[in-house]
Amino acid sequence: MDGTPRTSIINTPVLEAADRLGADFVAAQPFPHAVIDEFFAPAFARRLLAEFPGFEQGNFIGDDGQPGGKSTSDKVRQLGPAYRELDDAIRSQEFLQLLSRLTGIESLIYDPWYLGGGTHENRDGMSLDPHVDFNFHPSERWHRRLNLIIYLNPVWDAQWGGNFELFRDPHGSPRPDVSIAPAFNRCAIFETSERSWHGFDRIRLPPEHAGLTRRSIALYFYTKDRPTDEIAERHTTYYVNRQLPERFVEGAVLDAADVAEMRELVSQRDAHIRMLYAENTALRKAQDAGIGGQLVYLAKRAYVRFRR
Rank of each mutant, 00 (worst) to 15 (best):
L205P: 09
L212Q: 11
D229G: 01
E261P: 01
H171C: 04
V240I: 12
R204E: 15
E261F: 08
P206C: 07
A210Y: 01
D177N: 14
D258I: 08
R242Y: 01
M262A: 13
L205Y: 01
D225T: 15
Y220V: 09
R234F: 07
R242N: 06
Y238V: 11
D258A: 13
H171K: 08
G211V: 00
H209V: 03
Q243D: 00
Y220F: 10
A188K: 08
R186N: 09
A181W: 02
F221T: 10
V253Q: 12
A183N: 15
F248Y: 13
D258W: 03
E233L: 07
Q243Y: 00
F184D: 15
I180N: 05
R247H: 14
S216Q: 10
A188G: 08
L254R: 06
V178T: 07
A181G: 05
T236Q: 14
H209L: 09
K224F: 13
P227N: 03
S193H: 11
S216W: 05
E261Y: 12
E191W: 09
K224Q: 15
A218E: 00
L244V: 01
G211H: 03
R204Q: 13
L219I: 10
D229S: 11
P182H: 00
Y239M: 03
V253F: 13
P245V: 09
A260F: 02
H171G: 00
E250M: 06
N185G: 12
R226A: 14
L212E: 09
E230R: 15
E194Q: 15
G172L: 11
N241T: 02
M262D: 00
L219F: 01
L212M: 10
P206W: 08
V259A: 12
G211S: 09
E230S: 10
I189E: 02
A183F: 13
A183G: 12
G199E: 04
T237Q: 04
R242D: 02
A252T: 04
S196K: 05
T223A: 15
V249R: 09
F221M: 05
E233H: 07
G172M: 06
E250I: 01
I203W: 04
D255V: 01
T237R: 07
H209S: 14
G211F: 01
P176F: 10
I231Q: 15
S193A: 14
E261G: 02
E194L: 13
I189V: 13
G251F: 07
A181V: 04
S196A: 14
R242W: 07
T213V: 14
S216F: 04
D258M: 11
D177E: 14
E250L: 08
V259N: 03
F190E: 11
D255W: 01
P176V: 13
D258Y: 04
L205F: 05
R214I: 02
T223H: 10
I180F: 02
D201N: 13
L219M: 15
E250D: 12
E261R: 10
R195N: 13
E230T: 15
H171W: 09
F184G: 14
I231S: 06
I180T: 06
A256S: 07
D258Q: 08
L205N: 02
T213A: 15
R175S: 09
S193M: 10
R214K: 07
L212F: 11
D177R: 09
A232N: 10
E261K: 08
G199K: 05
R226P: 01
S173C: 05
D225M: 11
R234G: 07
L212Y: 09
Q243M: 04
R214A: 02
A256C: 00
D177V: 12
R247N: 04
A257C: 04
